[in-house]
Design a binder for these strands. Sequence first.
RNA 1: GGUAUCGUGGCCGAGUGGUCAGGCAGAGGUCUGCAAAACCUCGUACAGCGGUUCGACUCCGCUCGAUACCUCCA
Length: 492
Amino acid sequence: MESSLIIYNTLSRTKEDFQPLNPPFVGMYVCGPTVYGDPHLGHARPAITFDLVFRYLQHLGYKVRYVRNITDVGHLENDEDEGEDKIAQKARVEQLEPMEVAQYYSDRYFLFMEALNVKRPSIEPRASGHIPEQIEMILKIIDAGYAYVVNGSVYFDVIKYNEKYNYGKLSGRILEDLLSNTRELEKQAEKRNPVDFALWKKAQPEHIMRWAAPWSEGFPGWHLECSAMGNKYLGKHFDIHGGGMDLMFPHHESEIAQSRIANSSDSVKYWMHNNMITINGQKMGKSLGNFITLEEFFTGKHPGLSQAYSPMTIRFFILQAHYRSTLDFSNEALQAAEKGFKKLLSGIETLRKILPSYPSDTPSNFNIRQLMDNCYQAMNDDFNSPMVIANLFEGVRIINSVWDKKETISLPDLELLKNMFGIFIFDILGLKEESPEDQNDVVKGLMGLILTIRKDVREKKDFSTSDQIRDALQNLKISVKDTKEGPVWTID
RNA sequence: GGUAUCGUGGCCGAGUGGUCAGGCAGAGGUCUGCAAAACCUCGUACAGCGGUUCGACUCCGCUCGAUACCUCCA
């Protein structure tokens, strides 16, 4: 395959040619959700970003194994929790088993991801199902001399690691700076150094989620699950690791360190990070209390929302920005996305009705091949979906012009255009038509009857009655447009 | 304070050393009984100040501003 795909690698801070380690196979690991709360807009961005990557790599012919974890081993939320496990705390509040909570929110996550037309990854491993692998990894790191045990907990020795390797090569951090910025807290008294991170934590008595390990009954450190599961399903060295920019430090930096020591090998060739979604310029996050759940978006039931937004509107909105840019949420921006998406969809409908121009040797007066090349070039340039969308809108303009008989299109070009729209809109961008309402036969029959009556009065030039019917339908959220081919109605 | 990313027209958002993003909103026009849709035309946009250059929104420096991460824990 001669794709000239280039990917921005956070590790080098440059765009690099994408050369898989073992073509045509590609291994991709993406940090998934912590299932302790309802999925919100912040979950949608990485899911859609890497869904785009997954889809495009597959389109190019790669055999992709895409692994996205489910973090169901509880983690702390913020300093208001007193060292209590995220999931365990929620469980106590709701009087549920921790795994019941994890199950519930995983299901919710899958449900909303499906609504966003995000493809299920090849493997969705759970951290709780990979405790032995994580313990094994810790043993390797201890054997290699880069971890130490204190009171049943195990910590990674960052200082020692940094003597030989570079702790900070991903995030641009410099260890000396990190050290000078840290202060001593009694909580971290077990650590030899504040920059060290936990591989295994001994569980406190109130901690519900716990597993037996050589050092104590406890639970694995947060960074470990991704390293262990990535290693298990993709091997020591794999192609792509993705996640949100907020995970770059310390999470991914620490993953690099652990894997390097445990596997005696670099773990990841290309690091990809999607940027954040902001709301009023601020990161959207649970701990900030400014997040809007996906369910609230879909139903419109949130004080900050002036209306409901469909899953495909959200998806289109996200794809209209490049994944490495911040994307600021507002009702205005989302409404613009909704209208733009509708325009794109109506372009597709028109495309289905278009016939090639007559006579059959009439040439097209525009270049479809060029348009398609532009789309591929945009995708090849670090997955530039906004550029693809811009070219699709150029396609919509052509479609409408041909429909209005203002431009001509040849049969081969028409086929090419249909092909292009199918590939880019549905296969690669993963958008789909939202059949807004399953109109039953009664509705269809009634509308047919009403529009026939309206047609009759229009022919008699009784426009006041005609407009009265149209206005009344509009009040019922039914729009009627009089086209050359007759009236067309849609439910808004 | 450190690290990183970024500051584009009313809004969202691409991109480039010297002709074009695109969407939404707005103005005018064509079409239409009207409306809608569609099509055509229209906007002294690139935070500020210097520098490099024949030429910078695009490269370099500084200033200002924004956001994320930088303590525990994940």
